[in-house]
Simulated scan of single mutants.
Amino acid sequence: MTIHYFDHAATTPMHPDVARAMLEVMQGPGGNSSSMHAFGRAAKLRLNRSRDVISAAIGCKPSELLFTSGGTESDNMAIIGAARAMRRRGRTHLITSAGEHHAVLHTCEWLAKEEGFTLTVLPVDPAGRTSPEQVRSAITSETALISIMHGNNEVGTLQPIVEIGSIARAAGVLFHVDAVQTLGWFDYRLREMPVDLMSFSSHKINGPQGVGALYAATGTPLDPLQHGGSQERKRRAGTENIAGIVGFAAAVDICVNERKKKQPFMDELRKRWIELLHDHAEVPLIMNGSEQEHLPHIVNISFIGVDTETMLMNLDMEGIAAASGSACTSGALERSHVLRAMGLPDEQIQSAVRFSFGLGNTMEELEDAARKIGLIVRRIRNNY
């Protein structure tokens, strides 16, 4: 059976060059970067070089980049750490949107329930966009932090983070951006952007799982969540994952070098996929998300009249990997909270499938996959 992996928004295959860089570390002599001997100094050198590569790629100082275990930890560190630090300044109000990843939404809700913060969850429009004016209206004298993602992981919609960040900065409010899905697609220059905190994850850009980073601009109030050693400038205790961090840096370096040719190809791949599905699916199709402001590699499509879970099960049997939404919640058989936040009709929500593309996908394989989907839709409609 030919396999088609169209779930790169969940996780991406590791790039061979990344694997080679990590293997060199794992097969070499061990070394703790906090140790003073030669093995420790060698590990520290790898750590520093990796931090230099990634910070240069996103346009910040190396000292402003903290390594974490992934996007969820980066989101938690940013939101909880900044909220607690700002509480000491009399700021106890948080703002986010209903379309955020649960790593942000659930963290904000936990702070409201367990630590007494007040929370405003802003609506999104039918395209999944957050209104900067609604952000402005929600800010009070007690607002500590605004957290709005850059690119949505379910529908690919891009948010106006520069405009929202400018509003936050003018009001003296910290601004956090979940950029887990957008790293590798944008030329970030964080030192020039009105962003105080930004979260990243390695495994969305063909790097290893279990590694991420948090950008924290110089001077940003941020309480550590982990205590122990003095790693990461005393902001995240614990021995660093040197092999994973080296792999992350290698993946970022590849992204920087390949972005200009990769992004146009993904745009064409996405466009062609939509055309092919219209040709083969034989049911009404609706694209969910923004038609103009979207990531190049994610497309969310409702196959009207075809249940999402039934569709995904049949896709899997035909060797096609897709998703119903976030990989963190799709296994729970929940309908997408993002699509509900967008106010879409039930028939659209209950038939939505996310396809996401990346390393290894080709124009040629789309033809075969679209033909299989046509057969699947006919099989489901005919109940056999």
Rank of each mutant, 00 (worst) to 15 (best):
S324D: 09
I58C: 03
R136D: 04
Y5K: 15
G40P: 02
G238T: 02
L190Q: 01
N257L: 04
G228A: 01
A370V: 01
G184F: 06
L47D: 02
P345S: 11
T157Q: 08
N32D: 04
K234I: 01
N152D: 15
G289T: 11
S55E: 08
L366G: 05
S34E: 06
I95Y: 07
R20H: 14
G358W: 12
N241I: 02
H102L: 08
A38G: 00
F39N: 05
E318G: 00
R191V: 06
I139D: 11
E365A: 04
L122Q: 03
L190K: 00
T308G: 15
H4P: 07
G210H: 02
V195H: 08
A250D: 09
A112S: 15
M311G: 09
E142K: 14
I95D: 07
A322L: 12
R136V: 02
I167F: 06
E154H: 11
I54G: 01
R84F: 01
E109G: 00
I80V: 15
Q231W: 02
M363Q: 14
T120Q: 10
E365Q: 15
A82W: 00
T157Y: 08
I242G: 02
E318L: 13
V246G: 02
F6T: 15
S35Y: 00
G289N: 14
L315F: 14
S33I: 00
F248G: 06
V377P: 14
H37T: 00
K204V: 07
M342K: 01
S330V: 14
R236W: 02
N314Q: 07
G151R: 04
I58T: 07
R136S: 10
E73A: 06
G358I: 07
V18Y: 00
G212T: 03
H37Y: 00
P224R: 05
P123L: 13
G90K: 00
W185A: 10
G331D: 15
Y384F: 12
M149Q: 13
L105C: 06
G99N: 06
A10E: 12
P126M: 13
L214A: 06
S33G: 04
H176C: 09
F355M: 11
A144P: 01
G331L: 09
R51V: 06
A216H: 04
A85V: 01
C328Y: 14
N314L: 04
E24G: 11
L45C: 03
A112T: 06
T96M: 11
